[in-house]
């Protein structure tokens, strides 16, 4: 039988899901997002709802947690989170 996880037996190009398909894309970054917890509404108020940064991140590099965390292994440094955060809780710093 054909097993796509076995490079010897595979006959067609069939790909399987894997994080970091393109490697550690964090290395592409020229600006690094720096999280300022004191400004994050999710930290300032337990009842607050936000997660705008999580929603807008094209890279899936921000977690939907309280507070959100940024996965710098993969963050490409686009700066959308910083621009979209209404509370100024993320600032971009040159790498």
């Amino acid at each position: 039988m054909v097993d796509y996880k076995d490079p010897k037996s595979t006959i067609a190009a069939v790909q399987v899901p894997s994080e970091g398909e393109a490697g550690k894309t964090g290395s592409w970054r020229s600006f690094k997002p720096v999280f300022n917890p004191e400004k994050c509404i999710l930290i300032k108020s337990e009842k607050a709802r936000c997660h705008i940064c999580w929603m807008f991140c094209p890279e899936v590099a921000i977690t939907k947690s309280r507070p959100p965390t940024i996965n710098l292994d993969y963050c490409k440094g686009c700066g959308i989170c910083s621009t979209e955060c209404p509370h100024g809780a993320i600032t971009m710093k040159k790498e």
């Binding site: 796509y4 490079p7 595979t10 006959i11 067609a12 190009a13 069939v14 790909q15 399987v16 899901p17």
Partner: peptide
């Protein structure tokens, strides 16, 4: 157990997996 069928392959094998020519 999702898969993707017929993505881009490379000229050379990648991590032991076939390149275009091997296919």
């Amino acid at each position: 157990e999702p898969v993707g069928v017929n993505p881009v392959t490379l000229p050379d094998p990648r991590e032991g997996f076939p390149g275009y020519m091997e296919f």
